[in-house]
Amino acid sequence: MNIFRLTGDLSHLAAIIILLLKIWKTRSCAGISGKSQILFAIVFTTRYLDLLSSFISLYNTSMKVIYIGCAYATVYLIYMKFRATYDGNHDSFRVEFLVVPVGGLAVLINHDFSFLEILWTFSIYLESVAILPQLFMISKTGEAETITTHYLFCLGLYRALYIVNWIWRYYFEAFFDLIAIVAGVVQTILYCDFFYLYVTKVLKGKKLSLPA
């Protein structure tokens, strides 16, 4: 464990908590893509099946349980409890265009052709594109609540910090996992234009609104 990975995990946890609290406190999921949240729940489920079979550390296990719990709680709030506030018309990204190619790629390119390893690879590839429905929804509505932009910033920052963690592990532990690195770089690149808007607008106190 290194400071970059720990900060990354805490940034990821912050993002998950921010979103859950935003929906719970405002009793509304306006502007939130339910599809992205379903994809994240799938990412955590397929990646953390090893919860049942292997124990790495208390930190590792507890974080996995928290991530899975929060992900399903968020999906529940969006599609059940506050479904009246769910903006289905703008959450129209065709996720099958993500899940099918990612599933195929996971079967073709992986470290080991075993059930758990292919699911892990699927989860890594899926996570790199899981935010697309959310970014697509913001581009359609042309704006995002400030709290949502903080959620997205923490979420994007987490994988950017993981890239630094992988650089660190390469030099100090001679460890690298090319599948995670390539997917992580793609994932972080997808946030770049959002990062630009976040820094130039939200941090200056303006509302995030895209040129319509």
């Binding site: 995990d9 080991d112 075993s114 390893e117 996992d177």
Partner: peptide, 10 residues
């Protein structure tokens, strides 16, 4: 048997 990855990252 080939060493299978023990993924220690979240």
């Amino acid at each position: 048997r080939e060493f299978v990855f023990q993924h220690d990252e979240l």
